[in-house]
Nucleic acid binder design. Structure first.
Length: 850
RNA sequence: GCCGGCGUGGCGGAAUUGGCAGACGCGCUGGACUCAAAAUCCAGUGAUCGCAAGAUCGUGUGGGUUCGAGCCCCUCCGCCGGCACCA
């Protein structure tokens, strides 16, 4: 490439200039109610990006994809007369800064500060219209003071099943508060990742490995803080209904919550008073239950195992405990198990059935025990075959498939109480039969587990909990924030003892009490940041009531009007934030039961080679390089022009050049170089009325761009603007008013060049309209779009044969007559019979012949 | 295995939701400008056949509904994402 090639237009200067102006004038700062400049007449619009973790690597081209989309919406909505809240901040607690600290000893706060500065300058270079005075950082004590405060509210609450909502713990009438607190300590099997030196939430474990780093995760019992998210399972599921979210994300959350309806059935153990309770979604197959299976970790195992089976059972349990999550979940392996020696009584048949122990039954789901119905469950069938257990068919399929091994719904057979009933009738009848005899009851089960909320890390929010005599209590609001101690050594201890344990001074809260040394997970800060943005500097409350009500409240269930981000948070952040919001809502602190009304996922941007961008592939595109070469406006427009926002799509350097050419044409439409080589307004620009065709194109463009922004079809909006500009290339007179409107349309996409050209027009034509950002969005006039003539397509048997211009007012009869008398049609239908003529007014005539 | 989503030129992608397939951009070909190149501008560009007018074929596969299907229904294939012994 020629190195002294002239720049296409001086984007570097104009972009710097306008970014400085926006900063200086704080043009995009939205005042809160009661603040100076607040206009209560305007409706509000809250448009939010998923705030980034400021990593050392800086931005990649994936970040600004969603950010550009929201910026277009924000600028557009401002022009449409909304008070727009469009903030940005930093989700800055997290592992990389801590690991860097371990390597270098540099405090994570310093690393974080540097990374934030880098991210911020990169974002500013792209020209996003963020409300920077509202910037927040989750690692700022003034911020996490309130994260801790919210934890305090959760700690001091319980979920009242009668009212179906959280209430202050003081309204709980029982004795054991800790058994109902929404935040509690439990000694439970958790996901321990030795490599990371911390425990992880279920949501952070993927295929038995840590989501971060991909290290093996072991199941091991530990004493940890949990949040009782399961109490909200029903509401988290039902209230998805009112949200405008992608179906896929809703489905993911539904599956994750995993509601299933069925029955709990008690099986009495033979020659004992003990009972084994099982959960089943198919109580109608109870008569086919020929054995029971307990999870190896089930607490009844020790109590029921017979003497002669004792050693075998013990050996099996130990083997199961040694297996990793991955091994245990391996579907391809054969079923294993061991007989306990005990028998239970099937309450329907009164027959003695053996109780087995097998690791295909999970302690964590249902009751940790199942009734084996081998005839109608694949897993039970496999198990029964392996261990030679009896198989009894009790469901007759309605189709012609074999009933042996049939897992669908059919007609109950061999089941005296319910014979002849359909599966769903049989379920009801057998359940009420069991209920009458106190042998079981209707039950609902969820896959969702309580949220494991503590981590063995340094760089996170400390808990405001102290321990005294083995009991925990929370510090009061006045003691917040609890700031982590400085450490020399950030290394995880490799044990369950968190790094904070090394700060001997800090741990001692008083003579008798010690601080909790676990920290909160990274999700804590992001669970409520959208609330903080409403009122980021409030030091009296996590968010001021009036500000919260103004920005979050309208007639929809969710507060944030538009939330854009990647799908990777479908069951993590997006579920946790909904949970916190509901707790705060129940306690009366916020006005909405849901945080995010509308969610849009941006697709992943692949490398030029169609592969995921990665360091090792060397296909990473750095936004800085693109902006150096083509400018921020070209970068923004290309990100949007690539294709539909939600779709996965590859980067193309050539594609950026194409979009840059478009912006250069916009520039040269209005600007020309004088003899001194300076850019001056072209004398083709005149304050004259536009030609009819130009008016028509302008209004078609207003309509298309407006509709496309509303429907997130930014790529086709840009296409339309290209068509508009192409039509004006090489015309002799460029009508001023047409160009002014066009620049407003272009502004959300390419804010710098449109601001600059707008200003140049204003300087030349001397008027007082003010800055482009103060303009209102243009409306299109239908009158300009109306055609007098339309092209009518003539088809024979659905195939295109000719086109004719017809007046728009032509009647069906006229269209029909013209089509039939058309010369080409005449040639083709000669000697054939016209069966039918279909006339679609203003569109086409289809002649059916045989 | 189950649940979602997608499949259109050489490439990224359009198509008013059943009515002219391929908008716009990239690439490519030719032309103008230039000593030359770059940049810019103009013209062409789905495939096949034809000098041409034009004809035939064409939206992963096979079928169906319809006057008419990229779009609706069924079958199969491929890719992407999620869940995965959840009883």
């Amino acid at each position: 490439m020629n190195s002294d090639r002239r720049k296409q237009y001086p984007f570097d200067q104009i972009e710097r200039k306008w970014q400085a102006i926006w900063d200086e004038r704080q043009l995009f700062h939205a005042p809160n109610p009661a603040e100076k400049g607040f206009d209560p007449a305007k409706p509000k619009f809250y448009v939010l990006d998923m705030f980034p973790y400021p990593s050392g690597a800086g931005l990649h081209v994936g970040h600004p994809e969603g950010y550009t989309a929201t910026d277009i919406i924000a600028r557009y909505k401002r022009m449409r007369g909304f008070n727009v809240l469009h903030p940005m901040g930093w989700d800055a607690f997290g592992l990389p800064a801590e690991q860097y600290a371990i390597k270098t000893g540099q405090h994570p706060a310093i690393t974080t500060r540097e990374n934030v500065a880098k991210f911020k300058s990169q974002l500013k270079r792209i020209g996003f219209s963020y409300d920077w005075p509202r910037e927040i950082n989750t690692t700022d004590p003034a911020y996490y003071k309130w994260t801790q405060w919210i934890f305090l509210q959760i700690y001091n609450s319980w979920f009242n099943p009668d009212t179906n909502r959280a209430e202050p713990i003081s309204t709980y009438r029982g004795n054991d508060l800790d058994s109902v607190r929404l935040a509690y300590v439990a000694d439970v099997p958790v996901n321990w990742c030795p490599e990371l030196g911390t425990v992880l939430a279920n949501e952070e474990v993927v295929d038995g490995k840590s989501e971060v780093g991909g290290f093996p995760v072991l199941r091991r019992p530990m004493r940890q803080w949990m949040l009782r998210i399961t109490t909200y399972a029903e509401r988290l599921l039902n209230e998805l209904e009112g949200l405008d979210w992608p179906l896929g994300v809703k489905l993911l959350q539904r599956n994750w919550i995993g509601r299933s309806e069925g029955a709990e059935i008690n099986f009495k153990i033979d020659e004992s008073d003990r009972k084994i309770r099982v959960f089943t979604t198919r109580p109608d197959t109870l008569y086919g239950g020929t054995f029971l299976v307990l999870a190896p970790e089930h607490s009844l195992v020790d109590l029921i195992v017979t003497e002669e089976q004792g050693p075998a059972v013990r050996e099996y349990r130990e083997r199961a405990a040694r297996k990793s999550e991955l091994e245990r979940a391996d579907l391809s392996k054969e079923k294993t198990g061991v007989f306990s020696g005990a028998y239970a009584i099937n309450p329907a048949t009164n027959e003695k059935i053996p109780v087995w122990i097998a690791d295909y039954v999970l302690l964590g789901y249902g009751t940790g025990a199942i009734g084996g119905v081998p005839a109608h469950d694949e897993r039970d069938l496999e198990f029964a075959k392996k261990f030679d257990l009896p198989i009894v068919v009790v469901v007759q399929p309605t189709g012609d498939e074999p009933s042996f091994g049939f897992t669908g719904e059919g007609i109950a057979i061999n089941s005296p109480i319910i014979n002849g009933l359909t599966s769903s009738e049989a379920k009801k009848k057998i359940t009420s039969w069991l209920e009458k005899r106190c042998l079981g009851k209707r039950a609902i089960n969820y896959k969702l587990r309580d949220w494991l909320f503590s981590r063995q890390r340094y760089w996170g929010e400390p808990f405001q909990i102290v321990w005294e005599n083995g009991k925990h209590r929370a510090l009061q609001e006045k003691d917040l924030p609890v700031v982590p101690p400085s450490l020399e050594d950030y290394k995880p201890t490799g044990t369950a003892e968190p790094p904070l344990g090394k700060a001997k001074e800090w741990i001692r809260y008083s003579d008798k009490s010690m601080r909790e040394t676990n920290t909160m997970p990274q999700w804590a800060g992001s669970c409520w940041y959208y609330l903080r943005f409403c009122d980021p500097h409030n030091d009296k409350r996590f968010v001021g009531e009036e500000a919260e009500r103004y920005w979050m409240d309208d007639d929809k269930p969710g507060g944030v009007d538009l939330y854009v981000g990647g799908t990777e948070h479908a069951v993590l952040h997006l579920l946790y934030a909904r949970f916190w919001q509901k707790v705060l809502f129940d306690l009366g602190y916020v006005s909405k039961p849901e945080p995010f009304q509308r969610l849009v996922n941006q697709g992943i941007i692949l490398g030029e080679d169609n592969q995921k961008m990665s360091k090792s592939r060397g296909n990473i595109v750095n936004p800085d390089d693109v902006i150096d070469q083509h400018g921020a406006d070209a970068f923004r427009c290309y990100e949007m022009f690539m294709g539909p926002l939600e779709q996965m799509k590859p980067w193309s350097t050539r594609g950026v050049e194409g979009v840059a050419r478009f912006l250069a044409r916009v520039w040269r439409l209005l600007m020309t170089e004088n003899q001194a080589g300076e850019w001056v307004l072209s004398d083709k620009v005149k304050d004259v009325e536009a030609a009819k065709q130009q008016q028509k194109l302008l209004h078609a463009t207003i309509k298309k761009v407006t509709d496309d922004i509303e429907s997130f079809s930014f790529n086709t909006a840009i296409s339309q603007m290209m068509i508009f500009v192409n039509a004006f290339t090489n015309v002799e007179i460029i009508p001023l008013s047409t160009m002014r409107i066009f620049l407003v349309l272009l502004n959300p996409f390419a804010p710098h060049i449109s601001s600059e050209l707008w200003e140049r027009l204003s300087a030349e034509f001397d008027d007082a309209r003010g800055d482009i950002t103060q303009q209102s969005w243009p409306a299109y006039d239908e009158r300009f779009l109306i055609e007098d003539e339309v092209e009518i397509v003539i088809q024979i048997n659905g195939k295109l044969r000719d086109r004719v211009k017809m007046p728009i007012v032509a009647t069906e009869e006229e269209l029909r007559a013209v089509a039939l008398s058309n010369a080409k049609v005449q040639d083709r239908i000669a000697g054939k019979t016209v069966r039918k003529v279909i006339v679609v007014p203003k569109k086409l005539v289809n002649i059916v012949v045989t």
